[in-house]
Simulated scan of single mutants.
Amino acid sequence: MEANLVSIITPSFNSEKFISDTIQSVQNQTCQNWEMIIVDDGSTDNTVSIIEEFLHDNRIQLHRLDKNSGTGVARNTAISIAKGRYIAFLDSDDLWKPDKLQKQVEFMVSKNQPFTFSYYECIDEEGKALGKIIQAPKILTYRQLFWSNWVGNLTGIYDVNFFGKIAISSARKRQDWMMWLTILKKIKTAEPIPESLAIYRVRENSISASKTELLKHNYKVYRDYHQKSAITAAACMIGFLFTHFFH
């Protein structure tokens, strides 16, 4: 494990329209001590050939799965290869602002924090700003995270020296929320950097763009991760709805 190296975990699947900008946003970081591990999950478009154009940068790795297995499997594959002290996540259609890594690593070191995240903003598929910044509580507790996923996947970073490598759920959706819950169970509270350091792309087929899909996958988190009964999970969803839509 290399001291203060950041391992960036990036699953990709049919992202030919976005992957180039995503990689460039990593290359543009003011913090240059990183490795980017891209695991392609069986793309059938030009995603792989576009990624291969960046492999002259020896900090970027490409690994290909034999078949489409879901983002959980792709992320776990990347995590198993990672050599860094810090694990960060960036999906193949999202973007980081140039000072994202520097600010978060400096924050974690100066405050001796093993996990942090930040605010982020949203764009549409064409890159148009939606005028929306997603914020989080200044001190995030496990209880707050239980009711709503306040941590944007593209902003979270954790310290492997403290947690070890955390296995991602094999569920097709909401693996990130379950990972943050695992982290908060251990450290009880987490503090975000209270500014937008990343840009989330809201795509037409994403669960963030569909309230029905969001509810379905969040219900599964209460059922499968928290091991709640069907009735209790349904009651939890009422609390989720109140927190998510009326906060």
Score class of each variant (00 low, 15 high):
Ser25Tyr: 02
Asp94Leu: 07
Val39Ala: 08
Ser170Ile: 02
Tyr200Thr: 04
Ser110Tyr: 01
Gln104Glu: 06
Gln29Phe: 08
Gln175Ala: 11
Lys100Asn: 14
Phe13Lys: 13
Tyr86Met: 05
Asp124Ala: 01
Pro11Trp: 07
Phe13Gly: 03
Phe162Gln: 12
Glu204Trp: 11
Lys188Trp: 06
Phe54Pro: 15
Arg59Glu: 06
Asp40Gln: 02
Gly152Val: 00
Trp34Pro: 01
Lys220Ser: 06
Ser208Pro: 00
Asn46Gln: 12
Asn153Pro: 06
Phe245Glu: 13
Thr189Phe: 13
Asn153Cys: 14
Asn68Val: 01
Ala88Asn: 03
Thr141Tyr: 10
Val160Met: 06
Gln24Arg: 13
Ser12Met: 07
Asn76Ala: 04
Ser169Gln: 08
Gly239Tyr: 02
Asn76Ile: 02
Glu2Pro: 00
Ser20Pro: 00
Ser15Tyr: 06
Ile183Phe: 09
Lys17Arg: 13
Thr116Met: 05
Lys228Ser: 10
Gln27His: 07
Arg174Gly: 01
Val221Met: 01
Arg143Gly: 09
Ser196Ala: 15
Glu213Gln: 09
Asp93Gly: 10
Glu204Gly: 00
Gly239Pro: 00
Ala82Asp: 00
Gln113Trp: 02
Thr182Ile: 09
His226Met: 13
Ile38Tyr: 03
Glu16Val: 03
Asn76Val: 03
Ala78Pro: 00
Gly42Phe: 02
Arg59Phe: 05
Thr189Val: 15
Ser49Val: 11
Met1Gly: 13
Val202Phe: 03
Arg75Phe: 01
Pro98Thr: 03
Cys31Phe: 13
Pro98Asn: 11
Ser196Thr: 08
Asp66Leu: 12
Phe246Arg: 08
Asn68Thr: 09
Lys138Asn: 14
Trp34Tyr: 15
Thr189Lys: 12
Ser49Asn: 15
Gly72Pro: 04
Leu154Pro: 00
